[in-house]
Design a protein around this nucleic acid. Structure first.
Length: 202
DNA sequence: TCGAAGATTGTCT
DNA sequence: GACAATCTTCGAG
């Protein structure tokens, strides 16, 4: 099993202070760590989606919707979390990007588990295989213990943070259309690591 | 105050 | 492949 060295630092705030599409690509290969509930669990980011601003009609902060209580953290500092509930059932984790007062974010869609798989398995009692632990936005939130309480949390501090894990080279990044949306579904804003079995869908 | 829709997942056929 | 679960959000009345 892979272990993490303890001298790796969180990604700096500046990492997130650029367009969501660039951050979505750069996040592939980085390490998402949760110490929620005292136990440390971690996974390598292998799939993301970008929601690039008010002109992105699929975004929760699209121009036709505007700034609301729900999407407030999307307008906050780059590098904080935007956590929302979907279908009344699951939590989804986004990373806020770009600049203050400009709603752009990256949805973390899948992880490759690298630490704390036993804890993930307890939280995801339904999972039958390691692949089932984090291969979807709702699944990884459950595996890491992420809830709405983490909305607006800065992602360079416990209990939820992202570490430098090495980038995925551009030749290994697949670009395609986003999953599960009804508006602006033709934009190529989903990114995943080629051939990685932990991606949510092909 | 009501109703419809939603960046998903798991179960059943 | 179809559909239910489940609840917050937002627009309409």
């Amino acid at each position: 099993m892979t272990t993490l060295s303890t001298d790796v630092l969180p990604l700096p705030r500046a990492f997130y202070a650029r367009g969501a599409e660039r951050v979505a690509r750069a996040l592939l290969g980085q390490i998402l760590v949760s110490t929620i509930g005292e136990t440390r669990v971690a996974g390598r980011i292998v799939e993301t989606e970008a929601y690039i601003g008010p002109h992105d009609d699929a975004s929760h902060a699209a121009e036709r919707i505007g700034r609301t209580a729900r999407n407030e953290s999307m307008f906050g500092e780059p590098g904080i979390a935007y956590v929302y509930r979907i279908y009344g059932v699951h939590w989804c984790l986004n990373v806020v990007t770009d600049r203050v007062d400009y709603p752009a974010a990256v949805l973390i869609r899948a992880l490759e588990p690298i630490e704390g798989q036993d804890v993930m398995r307890v939280r995801r009692s339904i999972a039958r295989s390691e692949r089932d632990l984090c291969s979807g936005p709702g699944k990884l939130a459950q595996a890491l213990g992420i809830t709405g309480a983490l909305d607006a949390h800065p992602l360079d501090a416990p209990p939820l943070f992202i570490l430098e894990g090495g980038r995925v080279p551009p030749s290994r990044i697949v670009t395609c259309t986003r999953v599960g949306i009804t508006r602006a579904h033709d934009l190529p804003l989903r990114f995943y690591e080629r051939g990685n079995p932990h991606v949510s869908r092909w």
